[in-house]
Design a protein around this nucleic acid. Structure first.
Lengths: 174, 174
DNA sequence: GTTGACATGTAATTGGTTACATGATTAG
DNA sequence: CTAATCATGTAACCAATTACATGTCAAC
């Protein structure tokens, strides 16, 4: 149930509309917790119903600006300090690696080469992101930078690993 | 729809019952594509209905041994070579990092310390796995080892990153 | 004879995706 | 006046999780 807490976390920083939140999900949280528009609006409704957020003000075009309540802040802190993060991971990229034996060595190598290139591209785009964003001193930026560094290290690792794996396949007698 | 292909991939190696597949999901694929018992049996039924696998033999206790068909093998190869893996990732661990600003520096540091320790433990358990499993020369073992190496590099990176992040938080003026 | 491993299935719920549907305001 | 952006919502579907439900066979 992390979407709930993602919304609470963002609203803990500053109040925002569903539309504002969507932009935050598409930019800062895109690589960490993607969410769709229908999910965000749905969750805001549920959070308001349970009193964790309130409609702070209404604007033009039906805009509703939500603010976190004391209960919401307590729930956010409870989630962060008293509960364990779900660490179940699924990786389709790695799942395919298990089955590369069903391909020719040439095809398998092509797959890993592509993954190496993709990781390198992603790495570059994260570097660009780090350069372009005007990282303020607000708390979200500070911690967003920690997450960005994780992404940089992850993509660097992925590229190296994929290149290594190509070597492993090449080294095998067929 | 990767569960379908995970099952096909395993059956491409050798025929197996739902029960056998479950054990494979719990051991080799646990870190890559977890699946529940009800999922596996359900998927086998659907695969059999669409002709991608067949019941090769029936044994005691209602055991049904499934084998991949030519259509199934073609589908597996199509999936591997003609379709793009879904790369959407969700990380609750990293999501929480974004919101560490809602905690005291002490609490935030405790969170990251715990992640470092967890990564180290996971790394050690993967190393143990690499030592214990009797890695045959079958295709699944060969490629499973590639995935294992990915896990080793990932957990090493995670531990280093978490330690670095603790330093970043400590360095900040509060 | 009873425990543990073998073996298969169904039902309810949750979380996420895609598609549909609608309308207001602003900038050029 | 018209295109882009702002803005909110609903419905159908799919994948995964949890819980329930049942029964067989082998070893001790």
């Amino acid at each position: 149930m992390s979407l709930r807490h993602a919304v609470l976390g963002l609203l803990a920083e500053r109040q925002a509309s569903g539309y504002d939140l969507m932009k935050l999900f598409e930019t800062s949280l895109a690589n960490v917790w993607p969410a769709t528009q229908s999910q965000v609006y749905g969750e805001l409704g549920k959070l308001a119903a349970s009193g964790l957020v309130t409609v702070a003000s209404e604007g033009p075009r039906g805009r509703k600006e939500y603010a976190i309540t004391d209960d919401g802040l307590a729930e956010l802190r409870h989630w962060l300090t008293e509960t364990e993060p779900d660490r179940v991971r699924r990786s389709e990229v790695l799942l395919r690696v298990f089955f590369l034996g069903a391909l020719t060595p040439l095809e398998a190598t092509a797959y890993l080469d592509l993954e190496a290139a993709r990781a390198a591209r992603h790495h570059a785009s994260l570097e660009a992101l780090g350069g372009s964003v005007d990282w303020g001193d607000d708390r979200l930026s500070v911690h967003g930078r920690l997450a960005l560094e994780y992404g940089l290290r992850l993509t660097a690792m992925q590229e190296e690993w994929a290149k290594w794996a190509v070597g492993q396949i090449a080294a095998r007698p067929e």
